[in-house]
Amino acid sequence: MAGQTDQLVKPGSGRGLLDVYGDRFLLKLLVRKEIKVRYRGSVLGLLWSYVKPLVQFLIYFVALGIFLNLQRGTPNYAIYLFAGIVLVNFFTESLSNATRSIVDNRDLIRKIYLPRELFPVSTVWVSAAHFLPQLLVLIGACLVVGWTPSILQLGAVVLIFGMVAVLATGLGLMFGAVNVYFRDSENIVDMIVMVVTWASPVLYVWSMVERVMGPWFWVYQLNPMTVAVEVFHWAFWEPTLKADQMVADTMPPDLLTVWLPVAMLVTLTVLFLGQLTFRRLAIHFAQEL
């Protein structure tokens, strides 16, 4: 009709992650659906959020802490170990599920149009729902052994959680989109998940790596998950140590002033590249699926 200024919008040409914020209600529905589907027919339900990391912790603690006697040189090794496991599990679960999210929701994507980014983002939120109970267990264990964090350390916990969520979202967007065209992406992500626990100072202390790598230690620090785990240890493990347990290499030099900003920059770059890749490939999702 004359006088109308409405313009046709090309299907699939949205605003990316900004559309996810605009469709928060849909995001909430997808998160609820993911949780219900995952635990349908399960007796324990969300209690698996406690059981899986607990079993993983016990295996590592017995094998490394007791058999290899790593707890002897690392005070409160149980806290050190569990703090790293909780954070890495959040990342690996988010990345794995985000990579499969588009393919797993193929039926919905074929039928209607909605921001495709909703699917990877919703899986990160589901992983966050599993992360929070584990975090509460970690906080409880820290309080038992005398945890006295500073305001800065508490703020660092929130910052690191957000950084890891953004990192998992960026990689999830990238691999989730590529996975529609090449299912090999799932195998690549499986290898990343397998390596990330050992590529970050979860089971060992960072100083062991520095002694081996020497001047090339900075390469190790470029991994955002390495920095994230180190900051988590600084926030949870270090405040549980007594004065006579403190050592000079509790955390790497320049962790907060240099490596944390670098990790955040790398994370934002990954998010940008992931969103760029996703938007370019999302146009033909329905046809490919």
Rank of each mutant, 00 (worst) to 15 (best):
G3D: 08
Q7F: 09
L8I: 13
V9T: 13
G14R: 07
G14C: 09
R15W: 10
L30K: 02
R40D: 13
L44F: 13
L46E: 06
L47W: 13
K52Y: 13
L64R: 03
I66S: 02
F67T: 13
F67E: 04
L70S: 11
G73P: 00
T74L: 10
Y77K: 06
A78C: 05
F91E: 03
S94F: 11
V103H: 13
D104A: 15
I109P: 09
R110Q: 15
Y113N: 11
S122F: 08
V124C: 12
F131G: 08
L138Q: 03
L143Q: 04
T148V: 09
L152N: 10
L152V: 10
Q153K: 14
G155M: 06
F161L: 12
L171I: 02
G172P: 03
G172W: 04
G172Q: 05
M174P: 00
M174E: 04
G176T: 03
D184I: 06
S185V: 05
D190C: 03
W198S: 09
M208A: 12
R211P: 00
M213N: 00
V229P: 01
W237S: 05
W237T: 02
P239M: 01
D249K: 06
L255Q: 04
V258G: 00
L260W: 06
L260N: 02
P261K: 09
V262C: 07
A263P: 02
M264R: 00
L265D: 01
F272C: 04
L276W: 13
F278R: 01
L281G: 08
